[in-house]
Design a protein around this nucleic acid. Structure first.
Lengths: 335, 335
DNA sequence: TTGAAAGCGCTAACAA
DNA sequence: TTGTTAGCGCTTTCAA
């Protein structure tokens, strides 16, 4: 790492002169033209970048604690938006004073993402989208700063979760209430345990009333995946009379397929999806989409409040806050 | 600001002892139970938060330059996602070593957002969504660190822009080619000059061929806005035969209205929208949406590369990089 | 026109 | 079991 001292040595000047020049105060301070040039050239040549830690430390500005948010770079981006919006809102509402550092990582490689620098440079960490691998890494290691997990379960860290049982139970109960007999499930590969819970509770709730899943189709969590999955569903010998999509991406794609094949929604086929976040798109899809809405903003707020307590009150008890989900009935399901 | 020294004074211990305890090394270093308690209690009581700048400085970890991204908190969140994804991709591809700090701000209040702390704590700034007000603030002040503007024009700062003329010209030319006679425009309030350019070039290009806009409707940049705007369009005495929507939000909402009123798209009404980012949603809307696609990822990459050059080579020439937009023909327009 | 020295908050080595 | 001291990179006085 090149410091101002290195440049001073290289140019045979003092650190203070170099500092003045590098901050563009050369002219004002009557530093000679030649010295200015010598310094700037040396800075470029040696590859100098100012160390902002030092500047901040020196500046006597009040300390701004930093919270680092780990987010799977490949994860659904619109959910990040909602989460960020929630964090921002939380910062404003509570008058929290935190810097927010976004750190994308490759799911399953959290161990590479949480560097010594993160641990030294931030006051707390919020982790989202952790895979089973990542969870194992977290469980097996100790960290010098507090960590809060979003939407995961842990015995070691404070967590902020949503009620995964409800997510599976609600659509099942709606379908049962409407006396549906042939439910289908359009889902994507489970990347965390909550997804299994949702699916199992969905099936179990139906089972209790003697109803079995007609078909489960697993696709990628994209509109394309939903579209393809819906087409496969339509090719089956028996058509389902109700469908649970485990993400709105999948549901939006499926709606397009059903529209093309002129399936009447909800008369022929009732659809309920998990509502990952795009409220406006749910409302203006054709037809509008009934969803189990996730309290992402509330959870973001809870994450921030929780990490804040960990930072200020040194409270790292592995407690869990769980939020209810909410059924929003629109035109893709019966009333 | 409470420091380790304050706690030392308060507890009548030395800073090093306090440091050891506060990092949880008390047990390991044989600090007495009572001392540990005294210190932690004092820390909570005095409201101590560790200063990470000092820790980092002390740690001898290599310097990680920080780039702060200013983003309008109320702006379309999905565009942020795409922009962030672009930045992330750029970081990876070029092997850039930067920390990315996301700083949301209220549009029109950039002056409040760019604090002394930002200027002292980051090596460079990328500004997105600046309003006319914000632009004025930027033009009239000088800043100690390099700034790059995204999607704005400036004589003072390096900028990364898209070709706004093309955005207006492309749909006009398509409509002309299809011999349309009654174009309509569904748009939202211009928040930056590029939007005026788009609208003017759209009108001008049609005008050159003797075609005038039938109607211009201004709505909020939401699906709701597009829906309402489309309904108003349908209430007019003459129905337009082609429509340019200046954002996909607006277009998605409009599609719903046209679907409800059973307007045949594109036979009765041809639609082209600005494609702000949601590629999948454009493809799976009903019908799929023809758009002028914006090169957001490329622009994000360019922003990063440009600010990187400013940081490493001290190059702050106010140059402009402009990117072409691309017409993507889908089912909402004729071939 | 340039340099020397002190200090921002923290930690590590060493001393007591 | 606790304290002293030096130093991370930078800026600011003050001195030369």
């Amino acid at each position: 790492m090149v410091t101002i001292k290195d440049i001073a040595k290289y140019t045979e000047l003092s650190p203070s002169t170099v500092s003045i020049v590098l901050r563009g105060l050369g002219k004002k301070r009557n530093i000679s033209e030649s010295t200015i040039n010598k310094v700037t050239e040396a800075a470029v040549k040696l590859g100098y970048t100012p160390n902002m830690q030092s500047k901040l430390l020196r500046s006597n500005l009040p300390n701004l604690p930093v919270i680092t948010l780990f987010w799977d770079a490949s994860a659904r981006q619109d959910t990040l938006s909602r989460f960020l919006a929630g964090l921002q809102d939380s910062l404003d509402r509570h008058d929290y004073n935190y810097g927010l550092l976004i750190n994308p990582y490759r799911i399953g490689h959290l161990d590479e993402a949480i560097t010594q620098r993160t641990l030294t440079g931030s006051n707390g960490i919020i982790i989202c989208n952790a895979s089973e691998n990542d969870m194992e890494y977290l469980e097996q290691n100790d960290f010098p700063i507090p960590i809060v997990l979003y939407n995961r379960y842990s015995k070691k860290y404070p967590t902020v979760t949503m009620n995964d049982e409800e997510i599976g139970k609600i659509p099942a109960e709606v379908f049962l209430r409407h006396s549906k007999k042939h439910p289908a499930l359009l889902t994507s590969k489970a990347t965390f345990n909550g997804m299994n819970i949702r699916e199992n509770v969905f099936k179990y709730t139906l089972n209790e009333s003697g109803i079995n899943i007609l078909e489960k189709i697993e696709v990628t969590d994209t509109l394309e995946g939903g579209y393809q999955g819906a087409l496969r569903l339509l090719d089956s010998s028996t058509l389902p009379d109700c469908l649970f999509c485990t993400s709105d991406n999948i549901a939006f794609g499926a709606l397009k397929a059903f529209n093309e094949r002129q399936i009447l929604i909800p008369q022929q086929l009732e659809i309920i999806s998990v509502g990952n976040g795009m409220k406006q798109h749910e409302e203006y899809s054709i037809p509008s989409l009934s969803v189990v809405g996730l309290p992402i903003e509330q959870m973001a707020d809870a994450c921030l409040t929780r990490i804040s307590r960990a930072i200020t009150a040194f409270d790292t008890t592995p407690d869990m806050q769980q939020f209810h989900v909410e059924y929003i009935s629109r035109s893709s399901s019966l009333v």
